[in-house]
Design a binder for these strands. Structure first.
Lengths: 229, 229, 229, 229
DNA sequence: ATTTAAGCGAGACGGTACGTCTGGTCTTTAT
DNA sequence: ATAAAGACCAGACGTACCGTCTCGCTTAAAT
């Protein structure tokens, strides 16, 4: 992707044989996308992708080790220009917009694939790792930029680890997405970001430090009940 | 479906034929648990459960509609007395202990099933719903008790919806659990709860309300960049 | 294999589970036969057999390790009452009739499978061995009876090994069948048997014994030409 | 392949592009031979030949329509000067030596290809025809020479068709080769030729002619039993 | 004591997808 | 023009697992 590439391509002779068919690849990814937007990853078969792509299964398996990775590539490729990375001048604003945008995306046919990948990853650690590297980390890096701006502007408390901030903001939404409890409306997104920024502690309440001293062996500690959970 | 059913149920006459084997059921659940603690739900086959349980597959499918629900029952049954529902007198304390405890559980062989169920639910909405009802809601109800105590004691801001509070506290951990990015140590749990309570906003920073007024059509709003995510 | 078997076989306790479906097996063999009478073994696929039999491929592979053995069973099963084992009182007659009958059979759709098996055996020695045991030897044993009768009646020279006799009679026909040179009419069958019985030596010609003495180092011996074969 | 080629090559400026590589062809045939002497035709893949020959698959398919014909050419080319066409002055002697020689060849790694071709031919009639023309007929023509000498010398009964004679001599051996029943030692070869020449009829036994008259509708004819073969 | 309605073990079955393999063709660049 | 490289298509292969079905045996309540 670099301009220095043309220097290389001067004597960078193309490989000898027939070239990997760009159309085939595009066709496969497109077909995969089409199917994956309608059915779950598990329900989409390699044969169906091949059939729809007008391509032989061999070609698919030549370039991807399995269905999941085709889906990942399709997802990654299909995702251009869809999620905003706002820079409004306000961290709360940024994260609110971002969360709304991301949530909307994850609720879309394409975005729902995110959950499919998480699901697939639960029985395929290697895939999960790849998913993190190829998607999640890129996303988080982008979001971390917003966080850094907030920190630098003095909006966000720098004591809190950025990883925690990110998970605090996106975790709840993703949890709802995956478990299906709780709504994912724009209001919820706003309320979540607001809560993350403002905290849930009632203002004026005494701090934890004092409480901690009272803890060990305190009567209260003994009142721990055991639930079936 | 007989009208005499109510009469029967009076003195609870036992059904006619051979009774459902209690040992079989226990054996199935035990076997399922054993296997599920070692392999993913997908990798554990119904045949393997039957074999290990010394039971026929028919018996399994007689009482459960599919493998996942066997696993769910095994999970639910295997989970007695494992997770604390503390009542220390401090909401932060309670939630911190709870989060640590829950995290430890979810990292355990049995607890890891939680992720398997979420995963399974992604291609089986009915199962997901059942999972929510039979596990998640119970859990959340219990946690909501802690929240209510905090609210009543004046520790937690009552303006924030309890659902959001719960997701704020558990969502990040569950996200890490599922995606495998980020650690799940006790320190992380503490820091997360602390961040949720305290918020991430730097104290003294001006509130969102003021900013909002400046937003619509503001120059900053136009600076939204689009990332590939 | 237990000595008590005869006792058991009295009331012959049936095996526990669902019984192997006789219809399925029959259906598979019938379908295989149908297809194999129309296409070569290689061209008949397991899927096609399954489809035509209205049976799942699994069921086929449950009972037969591969397509070839299904075909063999189909062949063996389809072959009842088709080939004569005559006993006319004359060995020449018997063998002539037999050869005609066998040839006719081998030229029939079903009989052509014989060649398919020989072919398959060339790249699968185990299959070839099985084919010999399950088909060829049975056939030869039957034919050997005819030979023995001929010997006992004084029609056939007992000095010649029965194996050679059988191969002399059937080998040429099978060779023609496989290689496709040479006709396989009834006249040919008659002529072959006649030649085998009568020999091809011109009556009155001096025997080999005398010639042998003249051989070593004889001028003739040096005239061996080398052909590309 | 013609001597007239040198005339052409005088002024006939060579064709425009890259010339057909003689080495490539030789290399392909050599590689094919190497592999075919070790595995069956079916097990030797076109890719393997190409790889071993250091040649592309295209080149193979450019010059040969399919794998089998490569094998046939490899076979034909690898077979120089291997099988004797003796002329000892005695037909029995000639055929005995020939049969021994041919049998030894067919048992050799190269010779075993013969069976492979016959096998291949069972599902590819065109190939079988080609095989007959390019190999079998040449062989038989050569053998027929021996037969003719025998006839002319008065050793072989001229009433018996030469085709039958040849099949009588070679058929049994080829049958044994293909089916794998029966040994192929030199003694067997001797015995077979001896039997073919001498016939298997016990000397002094009454001829078939008399019997034939007794046949039609005779009691014996009704004694034909039907065996499963 | 006999009937009868289940439960149960064994295991065959249909269905569906998997990922692999091979034969033979096609496309591109190099000679 | 021919070669080498190697991508491509078609379609069979044999395997795996799911959830269902069919038996025959066993158990226990009802008669």
């Amino acid at each position: 992707m670099q301009p220095s590439l043309d220097v290389l391509s001067m004597h960078e002779s193309k490989p000898r044989g027939r070239h990997r068919s760009v159309e085939a690849e595009a066709s496969i990814l497109k077909a995969a996308l089409y199917l994956l937007e309608r059915k779950s990853l598990r329900q989409v078969t390699a044969d169906a992708i091949a059939r729809r792509a007008g391509v032989s299964k061999t070609t698919i398996y030549k370039w991807w080790p399995n269905k999941s990775l085709v889906a990942l590539d399709a997802y990654l490729g299909g995702m251009t220009e869809r999620v905003a990375m706002p820079d409004t001048g306000s961290a709360v604003m940024d994260f609110t917009m971002q969360l709304k945008s991301v949530t909307a995306f994850y609720k879309s046919p394409l975005g729902r694939l995110f959950c499919q990948f998480i699901a697939e990853g639960q029985s395929d650690p290697k895939f999960l790792a790849l998913f993190r590297e190829r998607f999640l980390y890129a996303r988080r890096d982008a979001a971390r930029v917003m966080w850094r701006r907030g920190v630098e502007r003095g909006e966000i408390c720098r004591e809190v680890d950025s990883e925690i901030v990110l998970d605090l903001i996106y975790g709840p939404m993703i949890f709802r997405l995956l478990a299906g409890h709780g709504s994912l409306s724009e209001q919820e997104s706003e309320a979540m970001v607001e809560a993350v920024f403002g905290g849930i502690r009632r203002s004026g309440y005494r701090c934890l430090g004092e409480l901690k001293k009272r803890m060990p062996g305190s009567p209260a500690a003994r009142k721990i009940s055991r639930s079936p959970v």
